[in-house]
């Protein structure tokens, strides 16, 4: 019948189109689960081409909050993990999901907020005092609320300050449940205080009324670590290529690339691998 023939022709064309799509695949690659801060700040875009050119290994970065990135790696959906929540990373390794965690670099967190600064925390050097003041003033505070590295750090500061911000949920304490950029957008929109990593802040363009108010507290130190997903747990992990990447990031060449990444003359990340 005509109709059946026509349908078959269409199906054949469709099949051919699908079959002609292997351009999609490239086999020499690794998948790195990382954080929005490293991706959004443009760091990977700056350093990865150098690595890829040297080794021919394509690095595919899936950028998520650190919590999500850890989950992803735990399921075996990444070869290398490059995140910033040292405690969670050490737990990850202790549970056997990762091996050989190494410090890579650090940057720092900064507390940003509206220029009007209703809680009057600007210029302070103590993050704990600043948070207590914000809580006392019931000034709007935007939290990631997404179990990311930055969120975990923020919660640690609240705890150290002896404040339970969740009591202010729904009023002054607002959890966005999204990434750093989205949370900055929200904070900018409602003139709220927000804790952010400096890298994302420097590359963030929609600042509106926001400005850096508190920085320089040693507690705001933000350490990034890298590790291989455990091939014993997930046999498909590309351990050789993954190790090549890790070794490069930790090598003087890789560390130099990280140090040389700047926005507006400002260095974003400070390499501190122990070699």
């Amino acid at each position: 019948m005509d109709m059946i023939r026509r349908t078959l022709v269409v199906a054949a064309i469709g099949g051919a189109a699908l079959a002609a799509a292997p351009v999609f695949a490239q086999d020499k690659f690794i998948t790195v689960a990382s954080t929005t801060s490293t991706e959004n700040s443009g760091l990977f875009k700056a350093i990865l081409p150098v690595f890829e050119k040297q080794t021919g290994i394509q690095v595919r970065v899936v950028a998520l909050g650190t919590g999500q990135a850890l989950d992803l790696a735990r399921r075996g959906d990444a070869d290398v993990l490059f995140v910033h929540n040292k405690r969670a990373e050490e737990k990850f390794v202790a549970e056997g999901y990762g091996i050989d965690r190494n410090d890579v670099m650090y940057n720092d967190f900064v507390l940003v907020g509206p220029k009007s600064d209703p809680a009057k925390v600007g210029g302070g050097k103590d993050i704990l005092v600043a948070l207590k003041t914000i809580e006392a003033a019931k000034a709007p505070f935007a939290s990631r609320g997404d179990k990311s590295g930055t969120h975990s750090a923020e919660l640690r500061y609240w705890k150290a300050a002896g404040v339970d911000p969740t009591a202010g949920k729904g009023s002054w304490y607002r959890e966005t449940g999204s990434g750093m950029g989205a949370t900055l957008n929200t904070a900018s929109g409602m003139s709220a205080y927000v804790l952010t990593d400096r890298g994302t802040w420097l590359s963030f363009k929609n600042r509106g009324d926001l400005t850096v108010l508190v920085e320089g507290d040693p507690r705001l130190f933000n350490q990034y670590g890298i590790m291989l997903v455990n091939p014993a747990k997930h046999p498909h992990v590309k351990k050789d290529m993954g190790q090549v990447f890790i070794d490069w990031v930790l090598s003087p060449a890789g560390q130099k690339q990280i140090a040389s990444y700047k926005i507006g003359g400002q260095q974003l990340f400070f390499p501190n691998a122990k070699q």
Partner: peptide, 9 residues
């Protein structure tokens, strides 16, 4: 989505 999160509206 990415450019939005970078604030480059």
């Amino acid at each position: 989505a990415l450019e939005t999160s970078k604030g480059d509206l």
